[in-house]
Design a binder for these strands. Structure first.
Length: 776
DNA sequence: GATTAGGATTCG
């Protein structure tokens, strides 16, 4: 049944067949029985007819309709998406305009696949040409109603362009060149665009002013062109800017804000433009336009490639009249050694890249000929993108023939394949992941080398020294309407569903809102870890049994050592043949016991614990051929009040050289470790959460950010029952014992998505960053 | 109300 027209909105009500009952859009649910129901609403958006590849090319049209006769208090789910199929889609497209009021009957009600994205309505209506019926009442004069004033511009689908007309069009960019000087008087931009009709149209834009040219960052950007004339060239339709023209571009990332990029100070931009952009983004995503993206990170560049590189400028230098050197990085490590182009330091503008060079992070890009103009204006620190950059293996001037060649980068002259470069505004959404990689660079780099298998798999037996926290009642304040955490990051990336996060390509930093489904380790004392930043070893805090054994073995048949530098006092223990000795550096004699570093020999673990109540800093030692030596590093090398400091067995030298601490005001684990030749192991908290937001679940680690997350220092927690209880209380609030998922609070989290190599296989990992418990 | 370009790898 085709779309039927009536003249007056009240006629629509008269058209309602007697057996049909009018239903409010707000009241529709997937379980509503659609038979004998109809809805009446205004068309607030009408999309184009598209042919759906997944459904044998059937034609479809999506519209959004909004209920108008509403009590004022109703604001939720007042509009709904309607999908028209087959001939009804075409008929609706021709007969109905935005702003018209329609009556729809005999629809089916389906779950809306876009609800999480558009927040419109949990359901959508589907209208099939054979059964459904549509009555339309055309809206009044074009000057009335908000939707009519929006229909100020009409946009011609790219398959409907007629020769020698002036048109407005929307399209997705499939090819572009940065503006270049033409042989005439202007700069010229050339691009190619497409839309749902799948027709590709070439387009040339001439303008003297560079800033008037469209701001295109990448293939997949959306562009809106006003007042372009159509011409046929080589049997193809082309577009050319004409008087009063304008160009506005948007990024093509689904779900990112619809931010118009244009130099034009006044331009019309309304709700329907937003819809059009979003529809083109959706369509483009299914067209593999974006999956053919030539963008590559330095970590995956191979010799001989042409590719696009998004990066930050570190330094630059003019080489000669036809070449300028740009030193850039993107925070990823290249697999091939990078060529370093030597430049006199006074010729270099920007920061020194020595440290980054050493880590193979700096790409030296030689920019030639016509591209020098754009390169000259760039300031160090700027984010930029190279298009069609070439990577080549080259022998460094001082290199031996048997050494591996180095990777150099050339931006050759000319504009073929869109070759060029441009700066990117720092706030650009597509820069967010790069920026977070750069900011977290040092941490990520360190983390890269940790075997994540260790992090995930190995949960050691509980150390007895850390007492089991009480099972406290969950905090009754947990409020499902608010997030129990707060994000502290400064970047402003879009919140993503977990399902989308799982589909994303690392590295990426993003925001999510989720609940905790499970956490690991269930016994929280197991989350306290010791970590060596040098060899990346992670282990549990040794239990008291193991430590006591080391003390017993050291004390057995121990003869007090005799060191020239030390003043020693000895006493017999209660056990026959065991002597307890205390040594201090002679120049510390007479200082307060809190200022002294005391070397203790011959005690049991229990005894040194008793001593540590009165003496602030105790280093347990043993005697080796009469000389003082450290104990086995299973035991702490320093007892400092409630805290015990451990050294890494693999990385410590145990040189015991610098025992003199003259002038040291306070002792901390690090200072004592350095003096003793010990590599300090740092305390950390490691918890794995299984997050759930209804769209999917994923396992996220809390590690580098754990102390900030709980507002607890790990080293302090190692010696404090109160702080361990605090962590347990927080865990019990975000995942109350025996609670169902729905009862648990939502958490707003910043998530870092990255890859680690595990047995040469890249594995995607998720880590919670920049998020903290909200303390009311 | 003219003209430019109209994609399709440099060669350092």
């Amino acid at each position: 049944m085709p779309v039927q027209k009536v003249n007056d909105s009240s006629d629509l009500d008269a058209k309602v067949p007697a057996h049909l009952q009018r239903t409010a859009i707000t009241g529709l649910t997937v379980t509503s029985d659609p038979s004998h129901r109809c809805v009446k609403a205004r068309v607030v958006h009408k999309g184009p007819v598209i042919s759906c590849a997944q459904k044998d090319g059937i034609e479809m049209l999506r519209a959004e309709i909004r209920e108008e006769d509403l009590p004022q208090s109703t604001t939720e789910h007042t509009s709904i998406n309607v999908i028209f199929f087959g001939t009804l889609a075409k008929d609706f497209s021709q007969s109905v305009r935005q702003g018209d009021v329609v009556l729809l009957a005999d629809f089916t009600i389906k779950k809306s696949p876009s609800f999480l994205r558009d927040k419109r309505h949990p359901c959508q209506l589907e209208m099939d040409g054979n059964d459904a019926c549509v009555y339309v009442c055309p809206s009044a004069a074009p000057s009335q109603g908000p939707s009519c004033s929006e229909a100020k511009y009409t946009y011609v689908p790219l398959n409907n362009l007629k020769h020698k007309t002036v048109v407005n069009v929307y399209g997705v960019v499939t090819f572009f060149k940065q503006p270049f000087p033409s042989k005439g008087s202007d700069y010229c931009s050339t691009l190619k665009i497409t839309d749902q009709s799948d027709v590709k149209v070439s387009c040339s834009i001439f303008s003297k002013k560079l800033e008037d040219h469209p701001v295109i960052f990448r293939v997949g950007d959306i562009i809106r062109l006003h007042r372009f004339k159509t011409e046929i060239f080589n049997d193809s339709m082309t577009l050319l800017n004409t008087y009063g023209w304008s160009a506005v571009t948007f990024d093509g990332i689904i779900d990112s804000p619809v931010d118009p990029r244009t130099s034009s100070k006044s331009f019309h931009f309304g709700e329907s433009d937003k819809n059009t952009v979003q529809e083109l983004r959706q369509w483009a995503a299914s067209q593999s336009l974006i999956s053919n993206d030539p963008t590559v990170s330095l970590s995956s560049v191979h010799p001989g490639m042409y590719f696009d590189l998004t990066c930050q400028l570190l330094a630059k230098a003019v080489m000669d009249s036809r070449c300028i050197l740009l030193k850039v990085w993107d925070g990823t490590k290249c697999e091939h050694p990078l060529l370093n182009v030597a430049v006199a330091s006074d010729a270099l503008e920007g920061e020194s890249t020595v440290a980054k060079d050493r880590m193979n992070l700096t790409a030296n890009v030689l920019v030639y000929d016509n591209h020098m103009e754009a390169a000259q204006d760039l300031k160090p620190g700027t984010f930029l993108r190279f298009y069609n950059l070439r990577s080549l293996l080259q022998r460094a001037p001082d290199q031996q023939p048997d050494q591996a060649e180095h990777l150099s980068f050339h931006l050759h002259g000319g504009t073929t394949y869109g070759r060029g470069l441009r700066s990117l505004p720092a706030g650009s959404p597509e820069l967010q992941s790069l920026k977070s990689v750069l900011e977290n660079h040092v941490d990520l780099d360190e983390y890269d080398e940790v075997n994540d298998g260790t992090l995930l798999e190995i949960w050691y037996t509980p150390p007895e020294a850390v007492v089991l926290p009480n099972d406290e009642e969950p905090d009754g304040e947990a409020d499902t309407a608010h997030s129990y955490t707060v994000r502290t990051c400064e970047h402003n990336t879009q919140q993503l569903t977990l399902a989308r996060v799982k589909r994303s390509t690392p590295p990426l930093s993003c925001h999510v809102r989720a609940r905790v489904k499970k956490y690991h380790p269930q016994q929280l004392y197991q989350c306290l870890k010791l970590f060596c930043s040098k060899c990346k070893t992670m282990k549990d805090v040794p239990d008291d049994g193991a430590v006591a054994k080391v003390f017993r073995e050291s004390a057995r048949e121990n003869q007090p050592c005799d060191e020239q530098w030390a003043a020693t006092s000895s006493a017999s223990s209660r056990e026959a043949g065991r002597t307890i000795s205390m040594h201090i550096s002679k120049d510390m004699v007479g200082q307060s016991t809190h200022m002294q570093l005391i070397f203790v020999e011959g005690t049991t673990l229990d005894e040194i614990c008793v001593l540590s109540r009165d003496y602030k800093n105790l280093v347990p030692v043993r005697s080796e051929n009469g000389r003082m030596a450290l104990m086995d590093l299973t035991a702490p090398f320093l007892f400092s009040g409630d805290k015990r400091y451990y050294g890494c067995k693999r990385c410590s030298l145990n040189t015991f050289e610098n025992h003199v601490f003259t002038g040291v005001e306070t002792y901390d684990g690090q200072a004592v470790a350095e003096a003793l030749g010990v590599q300090l192991m740092r305390y950390g908290l490691l918890i794995q959460f299984e997050l759930d937001d209804g769209t999917d679940t994923l396992e996220a680690l809390l590690w580098e950010n754990a102390e900030k997350f709980f507002h607890v220092s790990a080293v302090d927690a190692s010696g404090s029952q109160d702080l361990q209880d605090k962590i347990q209380t927080i865990i019990d609030t975000i995942q109350p014992p025996q609670s169902s998922l729905e009862e648990r609070p939502w958490l707003d989290l910043c998530l870092s998505v990255y890859t680690v190599k595990d047995n040469n296989i890249n594995k995607v990992c998720y880590q919670i960053t920049d998020s903290e418990i909200r303390e009311e």
